[in-house]
């Protein structure tokens, strides 16, 4: 019965991984039962061929056993690749701009430029892999969440099931999220690869007639980098959620409030950390910028909490 074994082998390759052994054992048993009943104990090769061709193509047989579980939902695949392209573009842009800025800050020599270019390519390559990993992880989670949200109304549905559908405010424009992802990634690249750019910005400011009232202590600032990065990373995830769902569901609204609060807490701690600022004589400098950001973020947070209660708690549109 080599032919049966080959047939089952062909089916096996297309079966769900976890239940391959069980399904193939069952199919084998069923096929042999059938052949025995139809042709007796010693069927000819032609008889087996006749039975197998009537039983169906291996892929067709295997398809009957598939349970359509996807790591990334089929409806999300296009978006997954779109966001991947956005991330690749933003990373390349971030590292390239950072490279150009560094070029202008240093003496241009052939060795410096060539090693810089090599570093640029290595940096882009090294950042792409974890980024794709994170993106994939986010989409796996979304696929699970998305699947739970889908209510099958195709068969035997009742209007009563509609009450479980959450009608959320539509997002005005997805381009805002696309630009936000690009901007945040470029900023993440900048701040992580060259925190000293802050000092460069300060120096540039002082080339004007104004004099800074304080400076950022880069060594202390570096300690905040991980928290700033996490906050921005949450921002990227939020915008990916918006792109996927194209509406602000209750869960996304809660996530938004949480990440906004985390961002506000981080910047507030930074403002009140006197070690972060050196040569303090007056407020003119990054401390004021942080304070302005904190004030804007506070208003945004209050507005988001207000909208959340208005829409989801009191159901006022």
């Amino acid at each position: 019965m080599k032919l049966v074994d080959q047939y089952i082998y062909a089916i096996r390759k297309k079966l769900p991984y976890n239940s391959r052994k069980d399904i193939t054992s069952e199919i084998r048993s069923l096929i042999l039962d059938n052949i025995e009943a139809k042709y007796g104990d010693n069927p000819t090769k032609e008889q087996v061929e006749e039975f197998l061709s009537a039983y169906g193509a291996p892929s067709k047989v295997a398809n009957q056993y598939r349970n359509d579980r996807f790591i990334i939902g089929t409806g999300l695949t296009d978006l997954y690749f779109l966001i991947m392209k956005i991330i690749l573009f933003a990373l390349s842009l971030g590292f390239s701009v950072e490279f150009i800025v560094t070029l202008f800050q240093n003496k241009l020599t052939a060795i410096f430029i060539s090693t810089g270019l090599l570093d640029l390519l290595l940096n882009i390559f090294n950042s792409i892999l974890p980024s794709i990993g994170c993106l994939t992880l986010v989409f796996i989670i979304i696929t699970r969440l998305y699947k739970d949200q889908i209510i099958d109304l195709d068969e035997d549905w009742t209007p009563n099931e509609l009450k479980d559908i959450e009608v959320s405010p539509k997002v005005e424009s997805i381009f805002e999220s696309i630009f936000a992802i690009i901007f945040i990634i470029v900023a993440l690249v900048f701040i992580n690869i060259s925190p000293a750019l802050i000092t460069i910005a300060e120096n540039l400011f002082e080339t004007s007639t104004l004099e800074l009232g304080h400076r950022i202590n880069i060594d202390v600032f570096k300690k905040y980098l991980i928290f700033i990065s996490i906050s921005w990373f949450l921002d990227i995830i939020y915008h990916i959620f918006i792109l996927v769902f194209q509406e602000k569901t209750k869960a996304i609204a809660i996530f938004d409030i949480i990440k906004e609060s985390i961002g506000l807490i981080i910047i507030s701690i930074m403002i009140f950390d006197s070690n972060l600022f050196t040569n303090f004589s007056n407020a003119l400098g990054f401390r004021s910028i942080f304070a302005i950001i904190a004030i804007i973020a506070s208003f945004e947070l209050i507005s988001k909490i207000y909208k959340f209660f208005k829409f989801y708690v009191f159901n006022l549109n």
Partner: peptide, 8 residues
């Protein structure tokens, strides 16, 4: 009944 339908 088609066997391919029944077993799954």
């Amino acid at each position: 009944v088609e066997q391919n339908t029944l077993y799954p």
